[in-house]
Design a protein around this nucleic acid. Structure first.
Lengths: 158, 158
DNA sequence: TTGACTTGGACGCCATGGCATATAGTCTGA
DNA sequence: TCAGACTATATGCCATGGCGTCCAAGTCAA
């Protein structure tokens, strides 16, 4: 007789703990691999991949995608720009903002890093997501993400 | 045709992105709520809950549980100690280390925060994990976590 | 036009984590 | 029993993120 009387309940705190622990460990392991092979970390890889797939995005678009603050995003873009992987182009239709684009070097980097990323992730999860349960889990998480985004849950103020 | 030829494959990069996005948003939202009601953040709640459930743990035990560095853990415990929620008692069988314990105030705090935590999590996930798919997802994530822990994946060096 | 309000984003301060190093305590084998 | 290796943790430096603040630019209305 745990918290729920009929068997249908989920242990939400336990689920959250598992979620955070998986995220931490996968993130750490991916960081190690990406750093050693491409001299970037996972957050940078994710920025670069987003910018490749959404050319002309603004800083605010990147911030919204990753649910982090605008200031932090601006600083992250600064670092990518300093490395020559991203450029800020003036936005012709709104001079307050810039449009972000990958350079050729950035595009090359993200392509190479993407291979490392996928390969490492496959090693790390090693079949844990195969089979019908795995597919269901992936789908559930995707739906939870969509629900959180629809509800604007957990956006930082900055 | 996508990456896998037969339909059995999972989009691992997509799964990872969903995992990180869910974690970020839930973490942010829980931070907001815990901060306003109890003046702590989620990481502190998790430390306190772990110490309540593992009285006499050492700094290294906490670090291993959360897959973070020992230095960071030591500093986190410093902050909890400074607030009067945790004490370091000398370890009688090894004077290099301390045994960590909650104070009465710490125990009271973690109890109150636990109610807020569970309630907020229930609001935020609002049924997204109900039903057989939800249960399967929770189980899969728990197994992935176990596998990562068994493999010592993603432990920081520090 | 002009003045009030909004929006995009850069910047500074502070908190926190990683990582390298320092230090004290413990153990092991001549 | 003592030197050297190992272990637990503390501490300092640096990178990064949150959050508040500032300012340029845009919008709107009269």
């Amino acid at each position: 007789m745990a918290s729920k009387s009929s068997g249908a309940g989920v242990d939400l705190p336990g689920f959250f703990a598992d979620l955070v622990r998986c995220e931490t460990r996968l993130y750490n392991a991916l960081n190690d691999r990406l750093r050693e092979r491409h001299a970037i970390v996972t957050s940078q890889f994710e920025f670069l991949r987003y910018l490749r797939d959404h050319a002309g995005a603004r800083v605010a678009d990147v911030a919204a995608e990753f649910a982090i603050g605008i200031g932090a995003t601006s600083k992250g873009v600064d670092r990518l720009e300093k490395q020559g992987w991203v450029v800020r182009r003036p936005n012709p239709s709104d001079r307050r903002s810039s449009l972000l684009e990958l350079t050729d070097g950035g595009r090359e980097l993200v392509g190479a890093a993407e291979a490392t990323f996928a390969e490492t992730l496959a090693e790390l999860t090693a079949g844990a997501l195969d089979g019908p349960s795995g597919l269901a889990a992936v789908r559930v998480l995707s739906e939870l993400r969509s629900a959180l985004e629809r509800g604007q849950v957990g956006l930082p103020t900055g």
